[in-house]
Design a protein around this nucleic acid. Structure first.
Lengths: 142, 142
DNA sequence: ATGCAAATGAGAACCATTTGCAACTAGCTA
DNA sequence: TAGCTAGTTGCAAATGGTTCTCATTTGCAT
């Protein structure tokens, strides 16, 4: 996309700073991730990455995703009855609405809900570390 | 506990009405589930059920849990990085707070959040079918 | 009692993900 | 630029929770 090149170089920088080597395979996976507008799973990422570098193996996709997740560059989501799906962690925090019929994922954010969650945790004597909020929905029939 | 006997008979009735046979093994699993105050996983249920009926196999635990889930008697939860955990579906709807250090699960309910979720789905053109809200927390340090 | 569809135990099968290993290679060093 | 070495890779095998297969048993309506 438009300036994905910069974004990719930025991500590669983050990796190098984190002591993670930027290999041919990782560069390919990173590019695919940066350009993805959806929430692909590991095998879909593998399929796409192979178009850039045919040598990328599924193992490497998984290993790279784990490394990227640890660097905070990628987020992993385990939606109901499905394989893990991934997205770059550049956008601000948001939750997900999953279309039960198509599997499509829509991002949304509600500051009210975020705040209520923290309040609930506090009331119960806890500090909220992270949360998971997923809405499983069907397109409204008119 | 106190009147769990009635509860168990009630559950058995639901099963029979649903065309599901109440076998010795299922009765044992049902009893364990009705008495559980926590959110055990399949192998823990297996462990406990065997104390009532040593013949219960893990296969049957899984099969029974699926049957109970279909009858709406049991709910399955897939918390982060963990095996599926179960609870009887008698209590009114609630969400879960998971203690990251102990794995303990605390139930809570927020009508405000419930309402906000439906509103968000509606705004995006969807009908909310179900949702998942989990708060991963640590005990507050005083 | 009888008959038969439903249920069971044991173990194999599934399948997404992880891991062991020997052969590479990114990227610092001289 | 060549060399070094710890980090990476592809492949295949392992993992582990959960589901399925199949021969045998059993609940329960008749």
């Amino acid at each position: 996309m438009r300036q994905s090149k910069n974004r990719i170089e930025e991500l590669e920088g983050i990796l190098r700073d984190g002591g993670v080597r930027v290999t041919r395979q990782r560069a390919a996976i990173l590019k695919i991730l940066a350009e993805a507008e959806d929430h692909p799973d590991a095998s879909e990422l593998h399929r796409r990455a192979k178009e850039i570098d045919a040598t990328v193996s599924l193992s490497t996709v998984y290993r790279t995703l784990s490394a990227l997740e640890q660097q905070g560059v990628v987020q992993r989501h385990a939606f109901e009855n499905a394989t893990a799906r991934f997205e770059t962690a550049d956008a601000p925090h948001h939750d997900h609405l999953i279309d039960l019929d198509t599997g499509a994922v829509i991002e949304f954010r509600s500051d009210k809900i975020e705040q209520l969650q923290a309040e609930i945790a506090a009331e119960l004597g806890y500090d909220l570390v992270r949360h998971r909020l997923e809405l499983y929905c069907r397109k409204r029939k008119d």
